[in-house]
């Protein structure tokens, strides 16, 4: 059977979501953002919420996310996405409101907004991309940078006496009363991507069911910031990130 005979509409098993438009993404080759964008698009499409989803894009690499997903978007000031999302969800309780933030946005500049939105139990879902670095602005040290990890602003490695310890925002979120679902996932293999998709779906459903705040952390790579090839970055993440940021559900309130 030739390739032409197989490539027919009735044999289709996987294509990118129709919510994801044809604009070429500005991310570096192999960036985890692309995979998570795909998952968000697929989940919204499967839930049939295309007309009712409102995303809050952060400041960081994902700042142009509104160029790629054909849903409603609101751009927030740096770190203030959970505050904006709280307002939108209170005004439009029937909308699916989610924020998409990096570690610099959520764990550094927006720590206060994030913690208070989660503590108030706002019915929003937060997708937290943790790649242990500020990817957009040249790869400087973030609060989540691992001890000993070299970045543009700590070329000799993160020193705990000088820079303190990496911040585990997801563990902090799990201790708050307002959160209903707190999990840490990754998107480096097919199995991990499937699990991450389920986690995002659950977070979105919790938000629509009014159960409280959900936080889905995705441990990601920044291969250009880490100065590695995409495949090597995935391997480095498995060896170095996962021991400090173990995957799994931290809190799942039924």
């Amino acid at each position: 059977m030739t390739k032409e005979n197989i490539i027919k509409p009735e044999n289709l098993v996987y294509k990118k979501s129709t919510l994801l438009n044809d604009n070429a993404m500005h991310y570096c080759p192999g960036c985890s953002h692309g995979v998570v964008h795909k998952l968000v698009a697929e989940v919204i499409e499967e839930m049939g919420m295309e007309e009712k989803a409102i995303g809050i894009s952060p400041v960081g690499c994902a700042v142009f996310m509104y160029n790629y997903l054909d849903i409603d978007w609101e751009e927030a000031a740096h770190g203030r996405a959970p505050a904006v999302a709280s307002a939108i969800k209170r005004l439009w309780p029937d909308r699916l409101v989610f924020t998409y933030q990096g570690d610099g946005d959520l764990a550094c500049i927006g720590t206060a907004e994030t913690i208070h939105a989660l503590n108030r139990g706002e019915n929003i879902a937060i997708i937290f991309i943790n790649n242990a670095i500020y990817g957009m602005t040249g790869g400087q040290m973030a609060p989540t940078t691992l001890v000993g990890m070299r970045t543009a602003t700590c070329p000799y490695g993160r020193d705990v006496h000088l820079h303190g310890y990496p911040l585990k925002m997801t563990e902090i979120a799990a201790t708050l009363e307002g959160t209903c679902y707190v999990t840490r996932q990754s998107v480096h293999t097919v199995a991990a991507i499937r699990k991450a998709k389920k986690a995002i779906r659950k977070a979105f459903e919790n938000s629509m069911n009014g159960k409280g705040s959900s936080l889905v952390e995705i441990v990601s790579t920044c291969n250009s910031g880490w100065k590695m090839s995409p495949a090597a970055a995935n391997k480095w993440m498995e060896e170095n990130m996962f021991p400090y940021y173990p995957l799994g559900d931290l809190k799942d309130k039924e």
Binding site: K3, N5, I6, K8, V13, Y14, G30, G34, V190, I193
Partner: peptide
């Protein structure tokens, strides 16, 4: 290798840019 693909979609699922479409029969 042209005729070895079994349409498992692994390549398309990991693709960050969504460039791969998979068909299976």
């Amino acid at each position: 290798e042209e005729d070895k693909c079994n349409g498992c979609s692994s390549c398309a699922i990991v693709c960050p840019d969504g460039c791969i479409t998979v068909y299976k029969t």
